[in-house]
Simulated assay, not measured.
Amino acid sequence: MRIYGPNGTTLGTPASQARRTSSGTFVLPDTSSAQETRAAAAPKAAANIDALLALQGIEDPVERRKRSVARGKTALDVLDDLKMGLLSGNLDASTVMRLRDAAANLKSSSGDPGLDSVLSEIELRVEVELAKAGQA
């Protein structure tokens, strides 16, 4: 992007119009020729930024499904850690906190009805285990 103005770049005269001397010293270009002036225009970046933000908001269904599968796997891993902690007699408060985080992450939809039903069953199991942990 070029900026035209007092602090930006300006259009200079072409090299063919500059005065040349045979001595090889520095010579300023002829300033008597009229330089091209540009009218100030409103920036168009705001519309471009809005378009980029709108495109970023559009989710790819494949990516959304992958994230939902990853959230489901994480919830199942935390449930497995909870089971191992209960069987060994070492129920950590951190496991319960991880279970609460997993439950909060399972609320979003994946867009796939079959996957959503599996995730809702995992969410139900997580909520049941959270209720049990809250009574203990």
Rank of each mutant, 00 (worst) to 15 (best):
L91M: 05
E127M: 03
A103W: 11
D92I: 00
K132E: 12
E121H: 10
A104F: 11
G114M: 04
Q135R: 00
A131L: 07
A131M: 08
A104K: 15
A93F: 11
R125D: 06
N105I: 00
A104R: 10
D116M: 07
A131I: 00
V96K: 10
T95R: 09
D92W: 03
G134D: 09
E121S: 12
L130E: 01
V96E: 13
E129M: 12
S120K: 04
V118H: 01
R100N: 07
N90D: 06
S108G: 09
A133H: 03
I122N: 07
N105H: 11
G134E: 15
S109G: 11
K83T: 12
V126A: 13
G114A: 06
A102R: 02
L115G: 03
M84F: 07
S120Q: 15
D116R: 09
M84K: 12
A103H: 15
L86N: 03
N90Q: 13
E123W: 02
S108N: 04
A104M: 13
G134P: 03
R100I: 02
E121L: 07
S109F: 05
L115T: 00
V126F: 06
R100C: 05
D101K: 09
S120A: 14
D116P: 05
G111I: 01
S117K: 12
Q135T: 03
V96C: 09
D101G: 11
G89V: 03
A103D: 15
S117N: 13
V128K: 13
L91W: 06
S120I: 01
S109Q: 13
A104T: 13
L115N: 02
G114V: 08
T95P: 01
E127H: 05
A133V: 05
L99S: 08
A103G: 14
L130M: 04
N90C: 00
K83Y: 13
G85T: 01
K132P: 00
A93H: 05
L106R: 10
V118D: 12
M84L: 13
E127T: 00
L99Y: 08
S117E: 15
D112I: 02
S108P: 02
L106E: 08
V96L: 08
L119T: 01
S109E: 13
L86D: 02
D101L: 06
D116F: 10
L91H: 02
K132H: 11
L87P: 01
R125H: 09
S88D: 15
L115W: 04
G111N: 13
G114S: 12
S109R: 14
A104I: 06
L99C: 10
R125Q: 14
L119Y: 00
K132A: 04
D92Y: 01
G114K: 14
A133N: 05
L87N: 05
N105V: 01
M97D: 14
P113N: 09
E129P: 02
G85C: 06
I122M: 06
N90R: 12
S88K: 06
K132S: 10
E121I: 01
A133E: 09
E129R: 05
G134T: 11
